[in-house]
């Protein structure tokens, strides 16, 4: 369960990166956060992990205040970062081993690691290869394996499909479906509208730190999500305000 209430973040340089965000992602639900570059998606995720502290508002994981008790909250979150960087001197398996242990999974065997890495689509010959030889997509896969290994109640995924080949992306969809079935609350930040249509229970469109549109699965299946997205992106901020008022 991932929740925010009136969550606002203003950086030291006075930039308002997030403005009164309200989110409620229940167990088993997949929430897609769409938005242009710089919309505030990564900022939202960083607030859940307390890498940055909120200026205003509340952010909680499984009901635990993430900014007051970050260590406790983090126990319940699996995280895949935007551009996965790992230890270049270690193999995929060694990297996975380290982060899985940090995530509290100390009893996994070599076979378990191999199984996980294969599941995210890493080729067999890459399992024991040093990370520094990996492509961006391969690193992304190891990052996903790390998130899966932790097996927490909630998943925060920052552009997980970037750099993945179509086959791997399709596998990711299956994996996420399976995870949501297992009762995980998933927040996925992405530019991938196609995946959103395929997977999302709910979609939020962000622009300049504000949630300008939120659609349930039923709603966006009826309408053309791509068109809505582009419509919002094209409009200036005051225009959006008007649209929101009109809709209400």
């Amino acid at each position: 369960m991932l929740q925010t209430h009136q969550l606002t973040k203003r950086y030291e340089d006075n930039r308002l990166a997030l403005d009164s965000l309200n989110l409620d992602i229940q167990p088993g639900r997949i929430f897609f956060l769409l938005g242009a570059n710089g919309a505030g998606k990564t900022t939202t995720i960083n607030l859940f992990l307390n890498f940055i502290t909120p200026t205003l508002g509340k952010v909680s994981v499984n009901g635990i205040d993430a900014s007051a008790k970050p260590l406790e909250a983090r126990q319940h979150v699996s995280f895949l970062s935007e551009n996965v960087m790992l230890y270049g001197n270690f193999t995929a398996r060694q990297n996975l081993d380290f982060f899985a242990k940090l995530g509290g999974k100390t009893r996994l065997s070599k076979a378990d690691y191999y199984c996980l890495l294969r599941k995210v689509g890493l080729q067999d010959e890459a399992l024991e290869k040093k990370l520094k030889t990996f492509s961006k997509g391969m690193r992304q896969k190891v990052g996903l394996a790390i998130a899966l290994a932790k097996d927490a109640d909630n998943m925060l995924l920052d552009e997980p499909t970037s750099g993945l080949d179509p086959k791997a992306a399709a596998e990711l969809v299956n994996i996420l479906k399976e995870q949501s079935k297992a009762g995980k609350a998933i927040l996925m930040c992405t530019h991938d509208i196609f995946r959103a249509k395929e997977l999302a229970d709910e979609v939020g469109i962000m622009k300049e730190g504000r949630m300008v549109k939120q659609l349930s699965r039923k709603e966006f299946l009826q309408e053309d999500l791509e068109r809505i997205y582009l419509e919002y992106m094209g409009q200036p901020m005051n225009g959006i305000d008007k649209t929101i008022h009109e809709k209400r």
Binding site: L49, L71, F79, S81, Y87, F99, L102
Partner: peptide, 14 residues
């Protein structure tokens, strides 16, 4: 620099 930090501190690491 490599933001490995984020991956480490995404866990309950003091």
């Amino acid at each position: 620099e490599t933001r490995i930090w984020h991956l480490i501190f995404a866990n309950s690491v003091k």
